[in-house]
Design a binder for these strands. Structure first.
Lengths: 199, 199
DNA sequence: CGTTTTTCTTAACCTCGGTTAAGTGAATTG
DNA sequence: CAATTCACTTAACCGAGGTTAAGAAAAACG
């Protein structure tokens, strides 16, 4: 089964065709550099220790990107879903060993590319650099906003905000992971939900 | 007094000369697009409400970049110092009104450039795009690391970590702002410092 | 289906950091 | 250099969220 058939209906291809006006030749070249990788629920895409030399496009599924703090608690940083890119961003750019876990919450279909191949591709398709710069900008503003949320909102506010802005999250991700994303314990999330529903 | 004499001894110029191999013509062109802006202690470089259409290089001095939460508390996000760039990153890219305050802690010398002029310059000096991409990447990893700190470390750990990694900060920035950066109240920082020194 | 495992909830207790208030010390300023 | 503002500290009290422990509910699996 070719990669193309898997992704023909995905944003991955429309993104480059429509937003960057890539022609069919460029698209074919682009696709030939990516490798399809399937991982099943609970499987790890990345574990700490190894250097992260790849990034992957989430074609299907949902994962959690987390770290473990000194007390041994898991802390969820992101929930990558369809149309996101995954990597240990710090390790990918610094070459230092990764510190992040990336684990599948659902069965996932990923499109993976190595750092080297991505650079090759960038040289062959200049439009990719434009796109990449845009992507890094968006990433920076997203994380920035997330940092502001952590600094200015209470757990209760963060919960209500997430419920409002990302209702999809609650349909497919266990509450214990959402609690970790909100930076509280599962018991505290339960308590919060009870307080809120009880009024 | 020309801009050149002000920045001749700064990283601003060595950065482009050494790292990007710019020649004197390119450097002169580059400099001609920047405007020298002096602001004195306590003065604001940016306030919420207006769209942030400029970015500025900190040639000299030290500032605080903060937001105000719903309870009216100031929350410091960054302490831009020499060789940093300042802007409301979200507003600059989205075109929405800024939410950040940027205020001088010391008398400052800034080199400012508009978004439009920066783009013009990017077209004239291709090396600038490379540099820009690198800068956005660094920015993303920095903020990412900061988010991880907020998620995994206790206030006490964040204090000790800052003391260790950025001792310079404690020499030039009032403790109340450092407390805000650490996401605690000044009274709690006092208590922490007493506990730590008393052992 | 019934069993086992995982996820979620509840409750009691405790701790850390916020809040309020007051006082001390340092730095500007006229 | 006296006055005023600003920065820092201390202490008492309080409450949100963490911790521990147990049980209920839901999902996975043979």
């Amino acid at each position: 089964m070719s990669i193309e058939s898997h992704i023909a209906d995905r944003k991955f291809i429309t993104l480059f065709r429509d937003t960057f006006g890539m022609n069919e030749n460029e698209l074919e070249l682009l696709l030939s550099f990516f490798e399809l990788k399937k991982i099943s629920k609970k499987e790890f895409y990345l574990r700490p220790g190894k250097v992260c030399r790849y990034k992957a496009y989430v074609n299907k599924g949902c994962l959690r990107n987390y770290v473990i703090d000194e007390q041994g608690h898991e802390r969820v940083l992101f929930f990558p879903i369809e149309d996101w890119w995954i990597a240990d961003i710090d390790s990918y750019y610094s070459g230092e060993p990764a510190t992040n876990f990336i684990q599948a919450i659902e069965d996932c279909e990923l499109l993976e590319i190595s750092k080297e191949n991505f650079q090759l591709l960038e040289n062959k398709i200049p439009k990719l650099s434009q796109w990449y710069s845009l992507k890094m900008t968006r990433r920076a503003t997203t994380i920035n906003r997330r940092m502001e949320e952590l600094k200015t909102m209470s757990p209760r506010e963060r919960y209500l905000d997430l419920l409002n802005k990302r209702p999809d999250i609650f349909q497919r991700i266990p509450l214990q992971y959402i609690a970790s994303y909100l930076n509280i314990e599962p018991q505290s999330l339960s308590r919060l939900r009870k307080q809120i529903s009880g009024h």
